[in-house]
């Protein structure tokens, strides 16, 4: 019988849940319990056609273990090698953490929304990250570095629990030389730590912002993002210029499994990057 959705396209037996095979080219320890994996698709056609935008993610799969959502943390300008920064957080990420160069992994993607790198051209950017939250923002930084003059003032406010939890520290100098003001803090310092101690939102006090021309991009624990939004609003940055990347349990990434729902949004489709003005009625509601 006929309905609007039974078009000939349906007949294509392409299952969006089927992974492609990729080979691990390189594994680089990046922080405590966190490694950066470089992946290359086995299929040359997939390798040639794959493109992604800063903020999007892939589903990574290991047979018998499961599948997890992991952001792309490499340069979107070099889509032939996929960089994923993965923290050992549980059963699947631990199994992935045991893989070595040459091993095979399943990949499907890219999924989800992107950071508004085009929309914010010409404006100042405050990039705020907590812990592993810097992973989906690294592609933003790498993209900006390639066309630094397209943006105004660019600040990175980054914090982690301890110095050993900070990601990409070996790249900070390069980012600074490229014209990004990198401000770093940790919750708990240790003897050798010479930097700032305190939570990320406090870093807002160290910067001067012209609220009329500034956008905020934030990723980290939800509680951190709540305070970031508070600080941004206090500096009269408009709600619709605040973007956050959200996380929910994900089992499909294509809108079928229902797990990632956040009110009317499917985080896997309309997110993970969401405009604060659009989700404000739901954001911060207890256990929502």
């Amino acid at each position: 019988m006929s309905t609007a959705f039974l078009t000939s396209e349906v007949r294509k037996p392409i299952d969006p849940m089927l992974p492609h095979l990729a080979t691990i080219q390189d594994v680089k320890p990046t922080a405590v319990g966190i490694s950066m994996f470089s992946l290359v698709f086995a299929d040359p056609e997939e390798r040639a056609n794959y493109r992604f935008q800063a903020g999007q993610f892939n589903m990574l799969y290991l047979p018998g273990a499961g599948e997890v959502a992991i952001s792309l943390s490499s340069d979107p300008g070099q889509p032939e090698v996929l960089g994923h920064t993965i923290r050992d957080a549980g059963s699947v990420t631990r199994a992935i953490g045991r893989l070595k160069a040459g091993d095979v992994i399943g990949v499907r993607g890219p999924y989800g929304s992107a950071w508004p790198l085009n929309k914010t051209r010409g404006s100042n950017l405050v990039i705020v990250a907590g812990g592993i939250g810097l992973a989906p923002l690294r592609p933003v930084i790498l993209s900006i570095l390639r066309q630094r003059s397209a943006y105004g003032q660019v600040v990175l406010l980054y914090g982690a629990r301890t110095p050993a939890d900070l990601l990409y520290t070996d790249e900070f100098d390069q980012w600074r030389q490229g014209g990004i003001d990198v401000q770093v803090t940790v919750d708990l310092g240790e003897e050798s730590w010479r930097g700032l101690v305190g939570v990320v939102p406090q870093l807002f006090y160290r910067i001067r912002i012209d609220h009329k021309k500034t956008a905020v991009m934030a990723c980290g624990p939800e509680i951190m993002m709540r305070f970031v939004i508070y600080e941004a609003l206090a500096r009269r940055i408009p709600k619709d210029r605040i973007y956050i990347s959200m996380e929910r349990n994900m089992k499909c990434a294509v809108g079928f499994c229902g797990h990632c729902q956040f009110g009317p949004t499917f985080i896997c489709k309309q997110g993970p990057v969401l405009n604060f003005a659009a989700i404000e009625p739901f954001f911060g509601k207890e256990d929502f």
Partner: peptide, 27 residues
């Protein structure tokens, strides 16, 4: 059934397992 059509085969991603069953059904 019309509602599940929208969810499972009504957007850019289509569930081929649902589609294969659905398009043959006689109601």
């Amino acid at each position: 059934i019309g509602i599940q059509d929208r969810v499972l085969i009504g957007s850019e991603f289509r569930d081929p397992h649902y589609a294969a069953r659905r398009e043959q059904v006689f109601v």
